[in-house]
């Protein structure tokens, strides 16, 4: 199916004897924005990390645009170049300037010339609103700015898919909005996104579907209004009552 850009089939993942993911099936259409919510330890980050093979599934399959990641013949680096990932802890490269952070993978992986990479980098920094920080080092930036650079770094690869692993969880409250605004902008631009987050505002504004996970399984899937408004499952209700209580 060509309009299903991400297919996760029967995903299981063990860490030692602990089973983090217990049979997850997930299909994401091209241009779709899917949110994964759930209590900590529910396996949502593990599912996300299996989508770009940062974690190798114990069993099950992941297909990105028809390419089977667990196939030994698949060059995982080629797939990853098409799948951007944004981390909770930003993970910018501290020894490189902001500009170099955004150009290095373009040059080494996409084999773009320095000039071309820098031009694309500046466009992306413009897009996330901090072109003036191009010459700065990551440690000189606020958390919100760092996360926006991390998004620009991924976007400069011109990926087909963007994965976000709790992108606002390590941010001070006043910086969350600037990151969500960039993500909202991306979602409106038609980017395929899978986002692990607890940001309800973002979910309502941008998500096509919300996936609720608990104990390594998908409990409930639906549009944000349904999941947050009238959840069908008891465990979803319990979780939402906890996070909406304050």
């Amino acid at each position: 199916m060509s309009d299903e850009i991400i297919v996760v089939d029967g995903l299981h993942k063990y860490f030692g004897h602990v089973q983090a993911v217990k049979g997850v099936d997930l299909r994401v259409g091209r241009g779709e924005v899917v949110l994964i919510v759930g209590p900590s330890g529910s396996g949502k980050s593990t599912v996300l990390r299996c989508i770009n093979h940062l974690e190798v599934p114990t069993s099950g399959s992941v297909y990105i645009d028809g390419v089977h990641l667990e196939d030994k013949k698949t060059n995982i680096n080629d797939v990853r170049a098409e799948v951007g990932m944004v981390f909770q802890q930003f993970n910018l490269f501290p020894h490189l300037t902001v500009l170099q952070n955004v150009t290095i993978a373009q040059e080494k992986v996409r084999k773009r010339s320095k000039d071309e990479a820098e031009q694309i980098a500046m466009e992306q920094l413009q897009r996330v609103g901090i072109p003036e920080k191009a010459g700065a080092y990551p440690r000189q930036l606020s958390g919100g700015q760092q996360q926006r650079v991390a998004i620009a770094r991924s976007l400069a690869m011109q990926p087909k898919i963007m994965l976000f692993d709790e992108p606002t969880s390590a941010l001070d409250p006043e910086m969350i909005k600037e990151v969500l605004d960039v993500m909202l902008d991306l979602a409106k631009g038609g980017m395929t996104m899978v986002v692990v987050t607890h940001e309800m505002g973002f979910a309502k504004a941008a998500a096509d579907r919300v996936v609720f996970m608990d104990d390594g399984q998908i409990i409930e899937v639906g549009p944000p209004d349904q999941i947050f408004g009238k959840p069908q499952h008891e465990r979803t209700q319990l979780f939402l009552s906890k996070i909406l209580a304050h």
């Binding site: 990853r80 951007g84 990932m85 080494k108």
Partner: peptide, 27 residues
């Protein structure tokens, strides 16, 4: 060097050697 550095480099499509050479070893 934190594990996140290798993960970030690999998630951008760099292979192990590139990630070592350009990201991990300089630090």
């Amino acid at each position: 060097i934190s594990k996140g550095q290798m993960e970030a480099a690999r998630s951008l499509g760099m292979n192990y050697r590139q990630a070592m050479q350009f990201i991990i070893l300089p630090q």
